[in-house]
Simulated scan of single mutants.
Amino acid sequence: MPQIFTASADTRLRTGMLLVALVFAGCLLFLGGFMDATYATLVGWVRDQPVPFSHAHHVGALGIDCRYCHTSVEVSAEAGLPPTHVCMTCHSEIWTGAPMLAPVRQSLATGTPIAWRRVARLPDYVYFNHSIHISRGVPCVTCHGRVDRMPLLARAEPFQMRWCLACHRDPASHLRPRDQVTRMDWSEWDRHPERHADFGRRMMARYHIEPAKLIDCSTCHR
């Protein structure tokens, strides 16, 4: 009876299956690395804006509080972007003819809002409420980084699910006094975590924060 398969057929089959397995494993490794790369997380990336607004100048040098521009951060799910008249509160008096501020003046004259491009954007399937975090004492710098050092705003954290869950599993270490949530420099606090561990525990009891509920899927996916 004639032989259907040659002696090397089994070797070729095994080699082919091995190559498929290696390609599959390589794809998984690539995707895993890609999801952590800054190209995917956008950490450190600056987005072009209609006006090159400098947080380093306004927050760091001038000491303007975050809530002056982001007026709804304490009462709404959205932090809010500043309306043009907030910008013109100062710039109707200073730098009135600066070319870079032309879009601001045009926005005020026409009543058309400035089309700011969001830097800290979460997917549509994620529910996030700024007011809840602010009212519990989670400072702005936790998520947005040292904006007082950013000439142009860039994303400071990856906003991946595991990053959010790390905080939800251990909320006590991230809580700060509510009246200082817009404070940028917490280096002294961070150098002595043992001094503030009791504060975190007391705040969790005061606000009835339960990590078991915070890591429930329905907390962020509704």
Results as ranks from 00 to 15, higher is better:
Gly63Arg: 07
Tyr68Phe: 14
Thr71Trp: 06
Thr71Phe: 11
Ser72Val: 12
Ser72His: 03
Ser76Leu: 04
Ser76Asp: 15
Ala77Asn: 14
Glu78Asn: 11
Gly80Glu: 08
Leu81Gly: 10
Thr84Gln: 05
Thr84Pro: 03
Thr84Trp: 02
His85Leu: 12
Val86Ile: 15
Val86Pro: 00
Cys87Gln: 01
Met88Lys: 05
Cys90Glu: 11
Cys90His: 14
Ile94Ala: 11
Ile94Arg: 07
Gly97Val: 04
Pro99Gly: 09
Pro99Ile: 02
Pro99Gln: 03
Val104Glu: 02
Val104Arg: 00
Arg105Leu: 00
Gln106Thr: 15
Gln106Asn: 13
Ser107Leu: 08
Ser107Trp: 00
Ser107Pro: 04
Leu108Phe: 13
Leu108Gly: 06
Thr110Asp: 12
Gly111Ser: 11
Gly111Trp: 08
Trp116Gly: 04
Trp116Ser: 01
Trp116Arg: 01
Arg117Ile: 14
Arg118Trp: 01
Pro123Met: 12
Pro123Asn: 13
Tyr125His: 13
Tyr127Gly: 07
Tyr127Ile: 10
Phe128Ala: 14
Phe128Asp: 08
Asn129Ser: 15
His133Gln: 15
Ser135Val: 03
Arg136Ala: 12
Pro139Gly: 09
Thr142Tyr: 02
Gly145Thr: 04
Arg146Gln: 11
Arg146Asn: 06
Val147Tyr: 04
Val147Trp: 02
Val147Thr: 11
Asp148Lys: 05
Arg149His: 12
Arg149Thr: 10
Met150Ser: 06
Pro151Gln: 10
Pro151Tyr: 06
Leu153Asn: 07
Leu153Phe: 07
Ala156His: 08
Met161Pro: 02
Trp163Tyr: 15
Trp163Met: 08
Cys164Tyr: 05
Ala166Met: 11
Cys167Ile: 15
Cys167Lys: 10
His168Ser: 05
Arg169Phe: 06
Asp170Pro: 03
Ser173Cys: 05
Ser173Val: 13
Leu175Gln: 01
Leu175Asp: 01
Asp179Leu: 06
Val181Thr: 10
Val181Gly: 01
Arg183Gly: 02
Ser187Met: 07
Asp190Ile: 00
Asp190Trp: 03
Asp190Arg: 12
His192Tyr: 12
Pro193Trp: 05
Glu194Ala: 13
His196Gln: 08
Phe199Ser: 08
Phe199Pro: 05
Gly200Cys: 09
